[in-house]
Simulated scan of single mutants.
Amino acid sequence: MSIISEKTEPKAIVILARMVKQFEKLNYLEMTKQDNAEIWIARKVLQGIITANGYKVNHDRTIPRSIIKLKK
C-alpha cells in the first residue's frame, strides 16, 4: 500500500488533493442518503490529512498546482 515514514511526502499530498477534487464531480449525481454521508466522511478524512501536513486543496483553476502550502 505505502511505505511508512516519519513525514508524508508532498507527492502523496498532491494525489490526495486530486482525489478530493474528484468528489466534486459527484455533486450533480443522484445517490442514496447513506452513500452521500459516507462520501462526505471520506472527503473530510482526505482533507484532514492534507491540512495536517500543512497544505490545502487548491480550487482556483488559474493556479496550476493541486495543493497550496499553508502559511505558518
Rank of each mutant, 00 (worst) to 15 (best):
S5A: 12
T51F: 01
T32R: 05
R65T: 04
L70G: 02
E6P: 06
K69D: 09
M31N: 06
M1I: 14
K11M: 12
T62Q: 02
K11H: 09
M19R: 13
I68R: 02
T8P: 06
I67R: 07
L26F: 13
Q47K: 11
W40C: 05
L29I: 15
L26D: 13
S66G: 00
K71C: 02
A12V: 12
R18H: 10
K7T: 11
R43P: 10
A12S: 14
V57P: 04
G54V: 10
A52Q: 10
M1Q: 09
L29Y: 14
V57R: 04
H59T: 07
M31W: 05
V57F: 03
E9Q: 15
P10G: 03
K69I: 10
I39R: 12
I4S: 03
E6R: 11
L70Q: 13
L16S: 01
R61Y: 01
T62R: 01
N58D: 00
L46R: 00
Q22I: 12
Q34A: 15
V45R: 01
T8E: 04
T8A: 08
S2D: 13
K7G: 07
N27S: 12
I63M: 06
A37F: 06
K11F: 07
V45P: 02
F23H: 12
G54A: 10
L16N: 00
A12Q: 14
N27E: 13
L16W: 01
D35E: 08
K33M: 15
Y28H: 12
L26T: 14
G54D: 09
S66P: 06
G54E: 09
P10Y: 03
Q47A: 05
N53R: 08
K56M: 00
Q34M: 15
K25G: 15
E38Y: 14
M1E: 13
H59R: 08
M1H: 10
K21Y: 05
P10S: 02
A17L: 02
I67N: 03
V45E: 00
K69P: 14
D60Q: 03
A42H: 09
N58T: 04
T32Q: 03
E24I: 08
F23G: 11
I67V: 13
K69Y: 13
I68F: 00
V45I: 02
R18I: 05
K11C: 11
K56G: 06
E38F: 14
S5W: 09
T62C: 01
I63L: 03
M19F: 11
K44V: 13
P64K: 01
T32D: 05
I13A: 09
K72M: 06
F23Y: 14
I41H: 11
T8D: 01
I3V: 03
I39M: 10
R61T: 07
K56L: 03
L46Q: 04
E9A: 15
I3S: 02
E30H: 11
I50Q: 05
N27G: 08
L70T: 06
